[in-house]
Design a protein around this nucleic acid. Sequence first.
DNA 1: CTGTTAGCGCGTTCAG
DNA 2: CTGAACGCGCTAACAG
Lengths: 328, 328
Amino acid sequence: MVSIKDVAARAGVAISTVSKVLNGYPNVSEKTRSRVQKAIDELHYVPNAIASALSSKNTARIALIINSLEHSQAIDEIDMHYLSGAIEEAKKRDIELRTYFYSMIEDMSAEDIARDFDAQRIGAFIVYGYNKNDAVLQILHSMHRFKSVLVDTPIYDKDTSSIWIDQAQAQYDVAEAAFSSVKGKRLLYLAGKRNGFVTGERLKGIKKFAKDRKLELTVCYGDFSEAKARAAVLKNGKESDMIACASDLMAVGAVYALADMKIKKPVCGFDGIGLLSYTPQRMMTVIQDFAGISAKAVDAAAALLDGEEGRNIVTGYTIGVREYSDVL
Amino acid sequence: MVSIKDVAARAGVAISTVSKVLNGYPNVSEKTRSRVQKAIDELHYVPNAIASALSSKNTARIALIINSLEHSQAIDEIDMHYLSGAIEEAKKRDIELRTYFYSMIEDMSAEDIARDFDAQRIGAFIVYGYNKNDAVLQILHSMHRFKSVLVDTPIYDKDTSSIWIDQAQAQYDVAEAAFSSVKGKRLLYLAGKRNGFVTGERLKGIKKFAKDRKLELTVCYGDFSEAKARAAVLKNGKESDMIACASDLMAVGAVYALADMKIKKPVCGFDGIGLLSYTPQRMMTVIQDFAGISAKAVDAAAALLDGEEGRNIVTGYTIGVREYSDVL
DNA sequence: CTGTTAGCGCGTTCAG
DNA sequence: CTGAACGCGCTAACAG
């Protein structure tokens, strides 16, 4: 295994000189730089990531905390996009990632997690699906011992960045796209989880929509659960002319409930998951680029580790329909 | 950040002694061991994983190579189970994992990948979905420079373990469960990808089934693609009395094709993905425990790194139906 | 059984 | 602009 020493020997310079060209430091003459580079290329030298991490105390590793409570194909799809987006971005930028599922840390104290992070030389963590109920993550965040990036949560400060889409506007837009030509006045809204950050924002959006259109709004909390959404629609669906849902999974539940009742009403969802293509009824939804968001989250974490201050990052989305033909 | 030095000081022993109790070495008296342990507990000391990895040359890190070519909710679901199974097992055993998606390495040479592995101190890799077409992975495997575990591929030798279910038997079993009471004699089989290892095995299983039942077997290659399966059934579905598919995704395509043609025939799938619960027709399938398989793969990789010889590991499966009510 | 001594491979002063 | 020297936190012989 060729080491920096071999490169130095071949280039006829000191180890430290090689290190300098490796890390793009200024004080190296162009001549020696190219000599060193030549040796690197010829030897196919790749720096040892471990040694590098140990030596430079820069704790450049980033933890990914996937906070979905259970598996379901819908959640898996979203999480997989989050994961692949982050992993590919990290690979490009040569950042090390550690993935944590919620189940791995749920019975650890914040202090335990912090020590685990220290041991792993983790300097920042990214949370997908942070919510107000997660005491542990909240403590971890409020310790300000690590940098953090919160996806879909509007909290940011000196060492915390936030990245999300404009939830309220997106909810408004999708409702408008789905219901613009609907005659009735009664709108049923299946909201997410109480205390969820996104839930509140999306609720704001649908309220504004209802107000602007002079619609009569009924809100049920479906907890992002397909089953609860289905039950809610079976119960309250008849007395409505259109149904907006705070997630695609709930929209699927709604659509199946309508199918059970053999009635048709326009429904709209939120997320853009593939399952939408298989349901008995097409619907408008907010299509999010989860992989792209995740890549940006990694960038944001890297920026924080570089000493930049936390920022509030708002990304885009599109409104559309996922057709069965899309998946074929 | 408390280090081994602090622990040694507090316990009044040498650093190496602490290291010994940390790693469970024999030559330490019970008295000093407990003194050291006390210091560790009091200081909440957690060893620095990086330094440990650098010092011990044991290249105990394991690479996960996720070899699905594209995203689809079905594939995402399976991969996510693979990932979570591996990650949780690795966390338990304190093994470091690095995840690679195929897209990250597809335009690298085997030599490049090997150097990347060296740089990351990766000693073994696990491949999900290895197939005969992957020249690069084949080279990487045949270099015998790293230990490897191949999931769903019956190749094993001194430093390669293989883990899979008995594909042929599973295919036989699911067909039997699905078609035992079917009257007709014509069986359409949608096979996987030509040259795929699992494809061949499953084909064997269905052939044996057809022979035992004296059925007339027609085989189409659907390449594990939903669209191709759908097209194949639209074309050949009428002239069959039952349809077996080498994957759930193809079974979904088949079911939709039948729905298009407004005919009903028994169909069976393979894998046990959640999407099956949403299709217009229920079906028997082989239900695999992907997370469990993946956890075993990590164990197998760890065993190889410990110097054990490669083994051929066969795991179980169940036959069943995924109902919509299961997901609710 | 315990402590001393060398490194692991690299980053980083600080003289020259 | 260059290189010798030290240290990151830990493991692994080796003495004592």
